[in-house]
């Protein structure tokens, strides 16, 4: 589904250059549930951003959904994001000014969905995560766990092939964290590919494969169960 070959990425500031990814190669196959682990600053989030087409690698090749994207234009990347990828963030990243259902709808605005079709999909996604009853609330009125569920609803509303989750449980307590992981597992079993960055070995255990990063390189890969 996504293949990275010898991908490099570094960040430059005025004083220092930090290498986030060094010659990294990785393949994600359809239907997989991959956990990415590693200490702070090992390049997990950078990798996820590149997988999600939010950022471009400095070097190497990248093929996503059968298309060469290493040097694809902004327009093409935006279309791929709209059609094929759903995001879940650690800090939820819901838009404060919009209601729950409007937030979910945002993921459908930039694809090719009609208005009534959008309404239906939003309702489906919200009931799927058990948040249909809070559709007209604002994000601030919800607890952290509830907000993350809304974020997941937003990620799945457009029915993407791939869901990327950046420490989805990082801001949640154990109970809510477990609920979110259960939800992700369920989505994977229903056929979606999930790639997740996490610090928690317990949550990594939900995945079928764990990739460990250190200093921008893959240092270990383990298959679970």
């Amino acid at each position: 589904m996504i293949r990275l070959e010898n991908v490099t990425k570094s960040y430059r500031t005025d004083e220092v250059e930090t290498t986030a990814l060094a010659d990294l190669s990785l393949a994600i196959d359809p239907g997989e549930f991959v956990a990415i682990m590693g200490p702070s600053g090992c390049g997990k989030s950078t990798l996820l951003n590149i997988l999600g087409l939010l950022d471009k690698p400095d070097g190497g090749r990248m093929v996503a959904f059968g298309e060469e994207v290493s040097d694809a234009g902004e327009r093409k990347l935006a279309r791929l994001r709209a059609d094929s990828i759903g995001f879940v963030f650690q800090s939820f990243n819901l838009i404060d000014e919009l209601t729950v259902e409007e937030n979910v709808e945002v993921s459908l605005l930039y694809g090719s969905n009609g208005r009534s079709n959008r309404k239906q999909r939003v309702a489906d996604a919200l009931s799927r995560v058990g948040m249909a009853h809070r559709a007209r609330h604002r994000p601030q009125q919800l607890s952290g766990g509830q907000q993350q569920r809304v974020a997941i609803a937003r990620a799945i509303a457009s029915d993407p092939k791939l869901i990327l989750a950046d420490e989805p449980t990082g801001n949640l307590d154990t109970k809510n964290g477990d609920d979110v992981m259960a939800l992700l597992g369920e989505l994977n079993r229903a056929g979606r590919t999930v790639v997740m960055v996490t610090h928690s070995p317990d949550h990594a255990a939900y995945a079928k494969r764990t990739v460990s990063l250190l200093d921008g390189r893959v240092v270990a890969e383990t298959r679970n169960g």
């Binding site: 994001r81 000014e97 605005l109 457009s158």
Partner: peptide
């Protein structure tokens, strides 16, 4: 900025 980032992650193009 944050909102725009979210929208872009959801597939919004520069034009949008």
């Amino acid at each position: 900025t944050k909102e725009i980032g979210i929208r872009k992650a959801m597939g919004a193009s520069t034009t949008d």
